[in-house]
């Protein structure tokens, strides 16, 4: 058996992740987090926030809650069940930052926490801002 055949053999016998079940769990988890967001939005609007401002308050609240859930060791349990459903919402982004920050605390606040804070979430900001600059150039020269 050469290496190519070996690779194929290994692939062929790999147990597949139960994709339908995983997708269902992701759907439920992601949906629930967004539903929570919508309930919060409704709450903020009822309290007098404008429909324009409410989304920002919702996102900030979710970032806060995700951090607390991460700290008490609950968010990774949600993620274990929900997979992509816990990854894609803003809570997944906050979880990545909170988890990196907390675990690196042993190397100090500056060289541990601060250095590693964006270890996982960094690429999102790097590619997001870069894409927005490219969009800005296009928008500026060619109009919207």
């Amino acid at each position: 058996m050469d290496n190519k055949q070996y690779g194929e053999y290994v692939k062929s016998r790999e147990k597949r992740s139960p994709i339908v079940k995983n997708c269902f769990n992701a759907f439920i988890t992601g949906g629930t987090i967004c539903l929570a967001g919508e309930l919060l939005a409704f709450g903020y609007e009822s309290a007098g926030a404008s429909a324009e401002d409410a989304p920002l308050y919702v996102l900030l609240t979710l970032i806060l809650l995700s951090g607390v859930f991460t700290g008490i060791g609950f968010y990774d349990k949600i993620a274990k069940f929900g997979g992509g459903g816990a990854l894609v919402p803003i809570t997944g982004f906050a979880n990545a930052m909170a988890a990196s920050a907390t675990e690196s605390r042993t190397e100090g606040l500056v060289n541990g926490t601060a250095v590693n804070l964006y270890r996982i979430a960094g690429p999102v900001i790097v590619f997001g801002t870069s894409a927005s600059v490219i969009y800005g150039v296009i928008y500026y020269f060619f109009g919207g």
Partner: peptide, 13 residues
């Protein structure tokens, strides 16, 4: 891999 509290998923292998 990742920080302990980070919600990542793993494959069966």
């Amino acid at each position: 891999r990742f920080p302990l509290e980070y919600g990542s998923t793993r494959t069966p292998t």
